[in-house]
Design a protein around this nucleic acid. Structure first.
Length: 816
RNA sequence: GCCGAAGUGGCGGAAUUGGCAGACGCGCGCGACUCAAAAUCGCGUGUGGCAACACCACGUGCCGGUUCGAGUCCGGCCUUCGGCACCA
């Protein structure tokens, strides 16, 4: 019979569904293993080849763990709220709820088609009230804990999406969704206080088993720095002082001016009457400037002198106070002491505005004659009174001690990380469950009244006024205060899409329970997640928020752990024709066509065979024929053996190879090295095919089981044909490895003369150097390479190599 | 500019702790089958020296080092990709 992937895959998709393959009894399972892959945003285009790549890798791992005897829980869901979905709905002019329902249906079909072993009975959809009720519940818990607060803030506003964005959603000054340049607006917004957890989020990274690149990205994003917060009094303003943060207290004697950010509250109030108009004009212009422009490092450093002076408490000298927009209002205190000799930015500013550049740290190589740039490395302190001669690090401590003793400042840690802004002036998200009462102020909606339903409205277009479209829906807005019963307004903003996904993995195990967010017993049994797989692009967004939410819920007593994922592995990105796949580029690969032509087994195996899973790569269908041929060979091998009759005797060498293959393929799956698992299986099939008339049952069954994580349907079919009535994907076990087969009695080793391979000999694995040497000396090739010389030195590495050194090495020659 | 990852045949990529570079596959060439083609099967395929074999030399981005021995370790560069970017 000929291999027919369409018929086989259709047959087994149905059988698996009937048998509930992938479903787990969450309460009874003895060996829980939570295998998680990042859930998709169900776009209208459907699953693309990159999703199939990502999910196949995770699924093959899950299937391998199931064969190892674990009860693998591999849930799937849909991250369907958010601006992305809404923008598409706006473009199509169809209500997002309807579009999303269609997309989800399509995604489910494709996820079935790709043979994912998913626990569908626990699927979640973040747009379902049964889910977002609990998203709102999470928000309320954070609020009660003091981790959610509303405050005025300068925020990133996208003029195209007509909403605010979190810092993490602004890429190089532009909106990550639509690439429109972001502008600054002042609005009252809800924040989640992730900065309270900055230290913990950072410290845990050291011990976490996560892809190193992700850990580095998170460290950089949190951006912890230690230093001194110091104050300089403002001359002539007895009540005013400028506080600033510095990581280089050792350079304080070199602070020759102070710079305030345009947002700084003192900027206008301390300016002299003469300077005030110029300062006011500068501040206004700077604040109106787009962030993109302001963030441009190559731009000339502009600024204006306030005419006011500050007292450098270290030198006792009065120094000018400037306002300049290269100082950020949102970091530290929004002001700096400028040390132009030792900070490149200050150097450029001082040069441009003719300010003095006093050197106070001498580089190890001595002072440059005519410096053209700042020196920011460590060195020896100079021109700094009693600090002279100290190293930078000694002086640093000295100055901090002194500042604290004298009351000029204190040691402080600052972070680059900002609080998480979650308000969105949009329609397609969960309403933030708060009520604004003229009498009681901001009042949380009682948990018993959740969910605050997102109303069905005709016009879901953003208003662009700084308010959500919900503000135009009186039935939604007008409510009563839960506290005093008087008339009140609902909060009309919805929450950030990332809040939906920051806790979805907690919901899966309890997904079917309507009366509570989390089932504590299942949480205790199944979490933290054993393996989490997802893309690099979520290194600092989703993955950091998720960790924060876990820590907060842990601190409130809802979770027995505070890190959600024991192991995280980033899969690579699939590109095509050298570029990220996108509709506009027209380089999107549709998996459906490949499924139709080759079947899902071939597509899955080929995607994994293309290269290392954790690196991704350029998709090309160049080699898929090779994998398709491989599937045929597997089929023909088993089919042929069943037709002809199985062999009953397996040669020793074949048995050796079988055990070796089991061990190697198992190691590969466990390490997500799926590409080398495929190669090894191909080599095994080649070996079995070479002796196809005599292959035994154990050999074929080994092959079938080992291949099943990648190609579930063909292997299930062959398993059945081999006479099994139970399902391979539900009942089968990974074959045992007998370690005695992994070591050979004899091994072929290389014989080198002066480090170059001249011959190969077969020696006993536990043989001595003398035996090996004797055998090697008997080789003509070795003798000819030696050319009559005797080996001066012999290096024998058992099982690997024998090196006969006849020539003097260059070093020996040099020593003589 | 800073951080991270990676540079191996025509191509995708293999290679325990430093120990036979190029597994496996694609492509290509030759052959078998066929009226012919496709499919399939067999053989070959790093580069150079040779028409070919034997054999020899060279060969893992570049330069240098450590070592009996380096794709792998160390120092210095170059290139590509990804992330961050006036964070004091």
């Amino acid at each position: 019979m000929r291999y027919n992937p369409m018929a086989i895959e259709a047959k087994w998709r149905e059988r698996w569904e009937q048998a509930g393959v992938g479903e787990v009894d969450l309460d009874a399972a003895p060996r829980p293993f939570y295998n998680l892959v990042m859930f998709p945003y169900p776009s209208a285009e459907g699953l693309h080849i990159g999703n199939v790549f990502a999910y196949t890798g995770g699924d093959a791992y899950g299937r391998y763990m199931a064969l190892q005897g674990f009860d693998v829980f591999e849930p799937m869901g849909f991250d369907a709220f958010g601006i992305h979905s809404e923008n598409f709905a706006l473009k199509m002019n169809v209500h997002p709820a309807r579009l999303i329902a269609q997309n989800v249906t399509h995604f489910r079909e494709q996820l079935h088609r790709m043979e994912g072993r998913f626990a569908w009975s626990h699927a979640v959809d973040t747009t379902s009230p049964a889910y977002y009720r609990w998203t709102q519940w999470v928000f309320l818990q954070l609020y009660h804990r003091g981790l959610a607060e509303k405050r005025m803030a300068p925020v990133n506003w996208c003029p195209s999406c007509l909403t605010v964005l979190a810092n993490e959603q602004v890429i190089q000054g532009a909106c990550e969704r639509c690439h429109t340049l972001v502008v600054t607006r002042h609005l009252e917004q809800w924040f989640l206080k992730i900065t309270d957890y900055a230290d913990r989020l950072l410290d845990h990274l050291d011990d976490m088993d996560w892809s190193p690149a992700i850990k580095t990205a998170q460290r950089n994003w949190i951006g912890r720095s230690e230093g001194l917060e110091l104050s300089f009094p403002v001359v002539g303003h007895p009540d005013a002082a400028v506080a600033f943060f510095t990581t280089r207290p050792d350079t304080v004697h070199g602070a020759s001016f102070v710079v305030l950010a345009p947002e700084h509250p003192l900027a206008l109030s301390i300016a002299t009457a003469a300077a005030r108009p110029a300062v006011a004009a500068y501040v206004e212009a700077a604040l109106a400037r787009r962030d993109q422009e302001r963030a441009d490092v190559t731009r000339a450093k502009t600024g204006v002198d306030t005419g006011a002076r500050a007292l450098n408490v270290a030198t006792g000298r009065e120094i000018p106070i400037w306002v300049a927009d290269y100082v950020l209002g949102s970091y530290g205190t929004g002001a700096i002491m400028a040390v132009p000799a030792h900070d490149q930015r200050d150097f450029e500013f001082a040069t441009a505005h003719g300010l003095p550049i006093p050197w106070v740290v001498e580089p190890p190589g001595g002072m440059p004659a005519s410096p053209t740039a700042a020196y920011s490395g460590p060195g020896t302190v100079a021109h700094s009174g009693e600090l002279d001669g100290l190293s930078s690090s000694e002086a640093r401590e000295r100055v901090m001690d002194w500042a604290e003793r004298e009351g000029h400042g204190q040691r402080r840690v600052t972070y680059r990380l900002r609080d998480w802004l979650i308000s969105r002036q949009r329609y397609w998200g969960p309403p933030i469950p708060m009520v604004l009462c003229p009498t009681c102020g901001t009042v949380p909606v009682p948990e018993s009244e959740l969910p605050v339903m997102l109303p069905e409205v005709d016009n879901f277009r953003p208003l662009g006024t700084g308010e959500s479209p919900l503000a135009a829906v009186p039935e939604f807005v007008d409510t009563t205060c839960p506290r005093c019963g008087g008339p009140a307004r609902r909060e009309t903003d919805v929450s950030d899409n990332f809040l939906d996904s920051a806790w979805y993995y907690l919901r899966y195990p309890s997904a079917e329970q309507a009366d509570r967010a989390l089932d504590p017993e299942r949480i205790a049994k199944w979490l933290p997640v054993h393996m989490y797989i997802g893309g690099h692009e979520h290194a600092v967004l989703h993955l950091l928020y998720t960790r924060f939410i876990s820590m907060a819920l842990h601190d409130m007593g809802f979770l027995p752990f505070d890190e959600p994922f024991r192991v995280f592995r980033a899969h690579g990105t699939m590109i095509h024709e050298g570029a990220k796949m996108s509709k506009s580029r027209g380089n999107v690969i549709n998996p459906d066509e490949l499924f139709d032509r080759y079947g899902a087994d071939t597509v899955r195996t080929y995607l994994m065979f293309m290269g290392p899973y954790q690196e991704g790569g350029d998709f090309s269908d160049q080699g898929i024929q090779g994998v398709y041929r491989f599937m045929h060979r597997v089929w023909d091998l088993v089919d042929g053996a069943l037709t002809r009759g199985l062999g009953d005797k397996t040669p020793e060498a074949a048995e050796r190879e079988r055990h070796r293959t089991i061990a190697k393929v198992g190691r590969d799956y466990a390490a997500l090295h799926h590409n080398t698992a495929v190669s090894t299986l191909m080599a095994y099939v080649n070996a079995l095919t070479a002796r196809r008339s005599e292959v035994a049952r154990a050999e074929l069954e080994t092959l079938v089981i080992l291949l099943s994580p990648l190609a579930p349907a063909i292997t299930e079919e062959l398993w059945e044909r081999l006479g099994h009535t139970e399902l391979l994907s539900q009942q089968a076990c990974w074959p045992a490895v007998d370690p005695t087969y992994l070591v050979d009695d004899e091994v072929e080793i290389a014989v080198q003369v002066d480090g170059r391979v001249r011959d190969r000999i077969v020696v006993a694995i536990d043989g001595t150097q003398e035996e090996a040497l004797a055998q090697a000396m008997g080789s003509e090739r070795v003798q000819s390479a030696l050319g009559g010389r005797q080996p001066a030195r012999v290096v024998y590495v058992p099982g690997r190599a024998l090196n006969l050194v006849a020539a003097r090495s260059p070093r020996q020659a040099a020593n003589e």
